[in-house]
């Protein structure tokens, strides 16, 4: 076989997966029955008294079944994984876009005027470290709608990284580029759109990536609280159903969707990136 260094990470990766899944599978096997099962044991499905984490083989089979029909809807307690993820994505994207709509223009103003930065910075610093879920009771009381409250929680957690990164990116646009705009007599608006925005775009996109990552983390917890629909509700509901196979499957799906959200934004940021 020819030596191909590009394959090495793939091989190591596959070996790791095999070892991890193998040991998980091996450790989750129920003990073999040593004698014939009693009538009671037959009824209970085996000699085992102790509940176990389902093995990966069971999760994979379950995932295959779920993913072959992801959008079925058989009542509030039994919806396909696709529907649940779609609810969560809808909330995350709505909250995130609303936050972007406010954070990016505000970040622009804070970044362009040092006086605004000084004036607003204390509030940002106090509001930023608040866990977004701490807003939940207040949101429920004021908005009186659990759906909108979940979106508000996403909104409030997405806003800070975008606001801070936009302000930082705008404030640190190279003076030379601003001078180029000034010597070309560009209006403030045109300077903002043709010089400052493209110059700060990579930093703004970094803020958006951080925001959407946090939003996806928070939505699971928010939906566990709010209930009804969504992947967070699904995880908690399957825990109440004692269906750990579904819980593990949902965990995997949360990871995959989160990764995809990040991949989308990282491809956008490649598009606006520039080299100095």
């Amino acid at each position: 076989m020819r030596y191909r260094p590009a394959l090495r990470p793939l091989i190591i990766s596959l070996v790791f997966l095999f070892v991890a899944l193998g040991s998980w599978e091996w450790s989750s096997q129920p003990p073999k029955a040593t004698e014939a099962l009693s009538e009671y044991e037959l009824l209970m499905g085996g000699a085992e008294q102790e509940a176990r984490v389902p093995p990966p083989s069971a999760v994979i089979i379950h995932a295959f079944n779920e993913l072959s029909d992801p959008f079925y809807d058989a009542g509030p307690n039994d919806k396909g994984i696709g529907i649940q993820l779609a609810y969560s994505l809808y909330r995350v994207l709505t909250g995130f876009l609303l936050a972007a709509l406010i954070a990016i223009p505000c970040g622009f103003v804070i970044g362009m005027f040092p006086v605004m930065h000084k004036a607003m910075n204390p509030y940002v610093q106090i509001l930023k470290p608040i866990s977004p879920l701490a807003w939940m009771p207040l949101a429920l009381f004021i908005i009186k709608d659990s759906e909108a409250s979940a979106i508000f929680v996403i909104f409030i957690c997405s806003i800070w990284p975008m606001l801070i990164n936009t302000a930082f990116g705008v404030a640190n646009v190279r003076k030379d580029w601003i001078n180029v705009a000034r010597t070309h007599e560009l209006s403030d608006m045109r300077t903002a759109f043709t010089v400052i925005l493209p110059a700060a775009a990579p930093t703004i996109l970094t803020g958006m990536r951080i925001s959407i990552g946090i939003a996806w983390l928070v939505i699971v917890a928010a939906e566990m609280l709010v209930g009804g629909t969504g992947i967070g509700y699904y995880v908690w509901n399957e825990w109440n159903n004692l269906d750990l196979t579904s819980v593990i499957f949902a965990i995997m799906m949360i990871g995959i969707v989160g990764m995809m959200l990040d991949l989308i934004l990282s491809s956008v940021s490649r598009w606006v990136a520039y080299e100095e």
Binding site: W177, N179, P198, A201, Y274, E276
Partner: peptide
């Protein structure tokens, strides 16, 4: 014409 060219890199 600035010393460091001041071209817009994007």
């Amino acid at each position: 014409v600035f010393q460091n060219y001041s071209l817009l890199p994007w």
